[in-house]
């Protein structure tokens, strides 16, 4: 506890702000039904009402409360983005560690496969898969985890390759420890620090990517509340001077900035401790 307070005290204001944004979003994520004034898909008033005490941020294109939609949107958007990032991290880390520990043909094959996926522009890759498989959240999760997993793989493999030549790894090998032990107990703990910052970056990438796909109408399907599709649904009003679409868009931007600020701070810390 004292340690955490110490770290918080030494954080620059930008990182503190980022942390605050993240905590706020996580709070909304967990408490959505408790703090939302109306139901997720409940039509409560007229179309595109302005801000008022009843509808804090106005209403959307079919008369649902904007704030409620934003709160539930946090659930869907952040939830799926976190899920994808976790899947990508676990699979990417496992494969990367395996490639670095086993080397040889495993490393070669995994490396070439990753090269192929990474040669595709990500958005085009996702669009093509979605056109073949149809648009559903499951397909979205699979495609994005695959895309993201390749980037994690590259990083983990590179870091693990450096760790792998350390004397303590050799000692463990000579001791007769198996592949699984060496990977889990010797290499993994020493590759973790750069991975935490990477987690933040990958989350931002996935999060923006999902929002973009939903905005294009190829991500979440209505009536589920999701920030990207909310921008799409309310975009038509912009030219009439109604800012409804700017709310979800600015929430997306805010969370990404928050995560990026914290990641930036972490990378700076690592850079300093490396010198």
């Amino acid at each position: 506890m004292k340690q955490i307070m110490n770290i918080l005290k030494r954080m620059p204001p930008s990182a503190l702000f980022g942390l605050f944004v993240i905590v706020l979003n996580l709070g909304v994520f967990f408490l959505a039904p408790a703090i939302a004034p109306y139901g997720e898909t409940e039509v409560v008033g007229d179309v595109w009402l302005p801000m008022s005490p009843d509808f804090f941020l106005g209403t959307d294109h079919i008369g649902r409360d904007m704030l409620t939609r934003l709160i539930y949107g946090a659930r869907n958007t952040i939830g799926v983005a976190l899920l994808i990032t976790f899947i990508a991290f676990i699979s990417g880390t496992l494969l990367g560690l395996a490639a670095a520990t086993l080397k040889g043909w495993v490393d070669q094959i995994l490396g070439r496969l990753v090269d192929i996926v990474m040669a595709f522009p990500p958005l085009i890759f996702a669009l093509m898969v979605l056109s073949v498989m149809g648009t559903s959240v499951t397909v979205l999760v699979v495609v994005l985890s695959l895309l993201d997993c390749t980037r994690v793989f590259r990083l983990v493999r590179a870091v693990a390759m450096d760790v792998e030549v350390m004397p303590y790894v050799e000692a463990a090998r000579l001791r007769g420890e198996g592949f699984w032990w060496v990977m889990r107990r010797e290499i993994l703990p020493n590759t973790l620090p750069p991975l935490i910052a990477e987690f933040g970056m990958r989350f931002c990438f996935v999060f923006l990517f999902i929002s973009a796909l939903s905005f294009l109408g190829l991500g979440f399907q209505p009536p589920a509340a999701d920030w990207g599709s909310m921008v799409r649904e309310n975009a038509g009003a912009i030219t009439f001077g109604i800012p409804a679409a700017l709310w979800p868009a600015s929430v997306i931007a805010m969370l990404t900035i928050g995560v990026n600020l914290v990641v930036d701070w972490m990378l700076n810390m690592q850079g300093k401790s490396a010198h």
Binding site: F215, A235, I238, T239, G241, A245, L246, I252, T256, I257
Partner: peptide, 29 residues
């Protein structure tokens, strides 16, 4: 630049539309 990287493209686009085509009517949306 950190802020710009964090903005989704459509957010930047809609802010520009609100500013330059709705408020100032300089460019078409």
């Amino acid at each position: 630049t950190l802020t710009a990287i964090s903005f989704p493209e459509f957010f930047v686009a809609y802010i520009l539309i609100t500013l330059f085509s709705v408020k100032l009517a300089l460019f078409p949306s």
